[in-house]
Amino acid sequence: MVSNVMSSDKKIIEIRDVVTKFGENLVHDGINLHVNEGEIYGLLGPSGCGKSVLMREMIMLENFHSGSIELLGHKIESIQSRAAQQLRMQWGVLFQSNALFTSLTVAENIALALQEYTKLSPEIINDIVAFKIDIVGLKQSDGNLYPSQISGGMKKKAALARALVMDPKVLFLDEPTSGLDPISAREFDTLIVKLRDLLNLSVVMVSHDLTSINNTLDRMGVIDNKKIVAQGTLEEVKTIKSPFIERFFEMEH
């Protein structure tokens, strides 16, 4: 399932020497990594190593102490608010808890960004929503339900449709398969790879799911002891001597 055809060498995300501190607690001590255009990149590491924090730093929800994060040509440590807003339209984020707006139906959740940021007519917005609903594998009738009325897997798909609505260049996924049953999780993997191929996406995901890692990731970075201990394809990463990597991939057998 893994294909490198789409990947080019253009870097869309470059992280240099990022240091993160929460008070006295040092979380990242000089993180360096990059994500190429068109690839599915995974952030791996033991619990509490700061994978999610790093992702939240990339999407400007968390500040870092020093270093630099360059995303789609913007340096986010010194970004102006206008450019930041521009940048926010070029990514989609899928949160671990989906974060669908509870007061809106699924279709309204998906349509929201189109209504706010474009002048398109309600009819065409409706059609775009119908397209996104279908492409993530939901039924059209699901669009009229509220988030409280649908299952966890459907919420994931609805949140993915919402993340995709502005045709983002980068998609951030925070543990996308957690809380899904194995069948839905594999379907989700297939969906992500399919969407990447169809929509020219680059994907950054935090994941613990070994099957998902095998199925989807082109490259990955492993964080352990506050630093990146390995970066590259699955084969490359497996050759690195590190207690976490050895134990993590041991579980496959």
């Binding site: 139906t105 349509a111 409706n126 119908a130 397209f131 279908d134 059209q140 669009g143 009229n144």
Partner: peptide, 13 residues
Amino acid sequence: AQEHTHFNSVFEA
């Protein structure tokens, strides 16, 4: 887009 868009879908709360 031709395959996946249902042009007759109507979304209303």
